[in-house]
Design a protein around this nucleic acid. Structure first.
Lengths: 102, 102
DNA sequence: TCTATATATAAGTTAATTATTATATAAGAG
DNA sequence: CTCTTATATAATAATTAACTTATATATAGA
């Protein structure tokens, strides 16, 4: 595994906000709006965190109307797999409950 | 695994200089003086990197005269084990060749 | 088309990291 | 005891990262 990619992925996951995002994504797709509530930071800050995880090849997204749903990619590197294994699953998303996105 | 420890360990390994230190430590004990040559940064900078790895519970040290030899601890967490598995071993140390420490 | 909502990007600020230089500590050699 | 060498700590400068506010883009709906 390339040392540069390794560093990039490790930097991407070495932040408590982003680890929280990943623990939510373990079990389900989550949309950006839900993360704003969970982390208690501004929407642009959330977008920037998600971008970092996406650029590191850890998550991906699909558009659903005006919403954007993020999820883990399928084939993670061994290091990211180990990180995900250590993270507790966290129920995060209101998606489907009708309160926000769906 | 505690989220705080996890973040601390991930921060400790998410730096290319420190990843290089670890790749040297995979195969052997290494003393500080050798790392200065390898990384091409100042001796205090090396000390600070080693301290960060030590505080994260990844490496430990023993004194040998005025030298200090660092090595990996035996029981690594799953994440750090995954990181070490991905790192290529690197021959780093002059120890034993008589050029510097021994 | 105009408006409202969700998300992204840009610019700027604050905070955290990583480096440097200077100095302290500790051990061995003379 | 003094000098030298190896390492650590302190203070500080430089770089990078994370957040905020303001603005842009894109989509849905009236």
């Amino acid at each position: 595994m390339d040392l540069q990619l390794m560093e990039k992925q490790l930097k991407a996951v070495s932040d408590s906000n982003r680890l929280t995002l990943l623990s939510c994504l373990k079990s389900a797709e989550v949309c950006v709006c839900d993360f704003v509530d969970i982390l208690g930071i501004s929407q642009p800050a959330v977008s920037q965190h998600l971008k970092k995880l996406e650029e590191a090849g850890i998550i991906t997204a699909r558009k659903v109307g005006t919403w954007k749903h993020y999820r883990l990619i399928e084939n993670q590197t061994p290091i990211i797999r180990a990180v995900l294994d250590e993270l507790e699953e966290r129920q995060a998303c209101n998606c489907g409950t009708g309160t926000s996105c769906d």
